[in-house]
């Protein structure tokens, strides 16, 4: 099962490398989003907590713009049925999840780097905390986005429906991550944030198990 999932991931990965549809649009979206924020702020100095929150705004909307491709592209190219034939539902989900995980990590590293370059207030004091938050948070983001992408791939009006469906599901995660990011900017110790890190880990585990169990129902026609 794992080899097949990895093969599916490699197929998506190579097709992306060849055409670069998703990656280009995503990079441009990130640049546009950060530029819009910079323009709207103008010469005003924004506080550290505001910068921390805005980081996750950019991450959320970039995720909404880029992560639905995993399933929607299959529907658009008409390859869904082939995929249903050659692999079991959990294998397909593993492959797509792996692809979205890599995409989320690459995308968020770019966003974080651009962000720290553009905003002076964004200085991370507790780097270990930020790293762990980044790791756990991106995993949660990828898992939830993938299962919601699977749901909307079969619905109409996919583009507008995707953020509408994802936001309530991601809201607990975003609230926790914003709080943790603010902690890492402030320099709060790692031990004080352990409770919230544990909750992010819980969210990841719950969403992962639920997604695997429910994907069967979404995928079968």
């Amino acid at each position: 099962m794992n080899i097949k999932a990895f093969a599916l991931f490699k197929k998506d990965f190579h097709s992306e490398l060849r055409t670069r549809y998703a990656v280009n649009a995503l990079i441009m979206f990130i640049i546009v989003a950060i530029s819009v924020i910079l323009f709207s702020i103008g010469n005003e100095k924004i506080s550290q907590s505001l910068t921390g929150g805005l980081l996750w705004v950019v991450i959320f909307f970039s995720a909404m713009s880029g992560l639905s491709r995993a399933f929607v592209s299959e529907e658009e190219r008409g390859t869904t049925m082939t995929l249903q034939l050659i692999a079991s539902p959990s294998t397909v989900f593993s492959g797509k999840l792996l692809f979205n995980l890599i995409l989320v990590f690459v995308m968020n590293i770019v966003i974080a780097l651009l962000y720290s370059a553009m905003f002076d207030a964004f200085v991370i004091k507790n780097f270990l905390l930020f790293l762990v938050t980044f790791l756990l948070g991106n995993i949660g983001l990828a898992i939830s986005s993938t299962i919601i992408a699977a749901i909307i791939a079969k619905a109409g009006s996919k583009g507008t429906l995707y953020p509408v469906l994802s936001f309530p599901i991601l809201l607990p995660l975003i609230l926790l991550l914003v709080h943790l990011t603010l902690n890492s900017l402030d320099g709060t110790s790692f031990d004080q944030s352990l409770f919230e890190l544990a909750m992010v880990a819980c969210y990841d585990v719950i969403m992962l198990s639920a997604s695997y169990m429910l994907f069967d129902f979404v995928w079968k026609d």
């Binding site: 299962i147 919601i148 749901i151 909307i152 079969k154 619905a155 109409g156 009006s157 429906l161 469906l165 309530p168 599901i169 809201l171 607990p172 719950i206 969403m207 639920a210 997604s211 429910l214 129902f217 979404v218």
Partner: peptide, 25 residues
């Protein structure tokens, strides 16, 4: 989500899955 799906069974299935995921939060 429900208003964007035409077929009855698909609408019921997808909204059921979303309802379960949402209930976890």
């Amino acid at each position: 989500l429900r208003s964007s799906i035409e077929s009855e069974e698909k609408r019921a299935t997808l909204s059921a899955v979303y309802s379960i995921i949402a209930f976890l939060t």
